[in-house]
Design a protein around this nucleic acid. Sequence first.
DNA 1: TATTGTTATACTCTATAACTATA
DNA 2: TATAGTTATAGAGTATAACAATA
Lengths: 160, 160
Amino acid sequence: MPKPTQNTQSEAPEAVPTSLSHSAGFLLNRSARIIRERVEEALHPLGLSAQAYGLMRLIEAGGPTTQQSLCARNKIDRTTMVQLLDQLEERQLVLRQPSSTDRRANLIFLTPRGRKTLSRATRLVKKEQEKFLAPLAPEEWESLRQQLIKLLEHNFDRQP
Amino acid sequence: MPKPTQNTQSEAPEAVPTSLSHSAGFLLNRSARIIRERVEEALHPLGLSAQAYGLMRLIEAGGPTTQQSLCARNKIDRTTMVQLLDQLEERQLVLRQPSSTDRRANLIFLTPRGRKTLSRATRLVKKEQEKFLAPLAPEEWESLRQQLIKLLEHNFDRQP
DNA sequence: TATTGTTATACTCTATAACTATA
DNA sequence: TATAGTTATAGAGTATAACAATA
């Protein structure tokens, strides 16, 4: 993620303009952007993007899975998946292994090195998350979490 | 926002993988993405991106302001702002007017046509937001909202 | 005939660097 | 000398289309 050109801020802008304080889109997108940027920054020394990190978490979670399955779970295109995995495989963080039951498909594994890198990354990301969530009491974060999960479960697969 | 290539989903993927259900980054980014995509879709007939819509909301909210001020409030680059405004001005939705007190600066206005388009857009976006928030009781949305605002106010201007 | 993965390519978004004009 | 806005350009990210191998 690139850094902004020198933007001179004559006045300190407010985090939540009143007129947008009831917009779910604004609040969610702005919060998401901040945590994503922090995570990108934290992972930079490991050479991982937030996207790549998320993908590795999914691979870790689901055990060996096909590229297609990762696409579906991550809602990204097949061709994007190829490129993401190319980068991870080149750095020997993941491994493609042709499935024995369907030889068109690749099973994706984390390598030992991948697992090591991922656990380091996870520690860094957790630290960022703690800083980000600092203003919330534990019950508040828990309730925020539950509400986001409810939103996702209701909206993830809905058709327009 | 482009549409995904035919991704065959053999199994319906879950909205929130257990291993990521405690990740603020995952939950926020996935929720933000969904609402953003819905908004993009809803605004497509008006030829507005979610980004452009958000910008017009900011212009509406703050009254005539300079491009720099819009950049700071929206956390985007000066050059990106130029391009966004170029598109809006070409469609006669906004107007640049050199400031009389600082002739380097442009004051940005919504045109009557811009206000009309914006109010139509806002109606469409509100409808999407209602659908998106449907699974939450009003108190739940209110608490989610307050928590997001708390996060933003604490994190918006923090230095790394 | 459909599907998995791949390649080549194009598009969108956003930023960096260099410029003009004002301050 | 610094700032507001602009231009030209480049990079990251992600998609579409066409293709090979397999089902």
